[in-house]
């Protein structure tokens, strides 16, 4: 079992990531990774670019997303199949259409509704405090 990098922020998380998706995938391929994910904040805007390079370099690309919620810890979401991907895309659409441009308002409750088929990873907060606990419905499969 070897390590794959599954939490990657590109510059499509505007003013957060310091590299283009293409650069990240290219480097992953150089380092001998067999798969890499892209987890930009509430967006799939960079995934096609990453996918094109991954296809070219012959590594697996996982289009994923980091969900920043209004009322809970941030989640990494990995769709296992197309239906799950479509659900995540629908979830982001829901959040986008609720908010003005460049904002995406999502609640924990929304995630439960669109969660089927995706694997979620909870990102611990900067400081672990007493009130940080795992929501019961979301478990790593």
């Amino acid at each position: 079992m070897s390590y794959e990098e599954l939490q990657v922020t590109s510059n499509f998380s505007f003013r957060l990531g310091g590299s283009h998706p293409e650069e990240l995938v290219d480097t992953a391929a150089d380092l001998g990774y067999t798969a890499i994910a892209l987890t930009d904040r509430n967006t799939f805007a960079g995934v096609v670019r990453a996918y094109v390079v991954a296809k070219d370099r012959g590594i697996k690309f996982i289009p994923a997303v980091r969900l920043d919620l209004l009322d809970g810890p941030s989640l990494l979401a990995y769709p296992t199949d197309q239906a799950a991907y479509s659900r995540l895309s629908g979830l982001l659409t829901l959040g986008n259409l609720r908010a003005e441009k460049e904002k995406c308002f999502l609640h924990k409750q929304d995630v439960y509704e669109y969660a089927e088929g995706s694997i979620f990873v909870i990102i611990p907060p900067e400081k672990i405090t007493a009130d940080f606990e795992l929501p019961k419905k979301l478990k790593t499969r």
């Binding site: 599954l6 990995y78 990873v121």
Partner: peptide
């Protein structure tokens, strides 16, 4: 990490 990567079958 490998488990999750393997479980994801979706290709764009």
């Amino acid at each position: 990490t490998q488990k999750i990567a393997d479980a994801c079958h979706f290709d764009l």
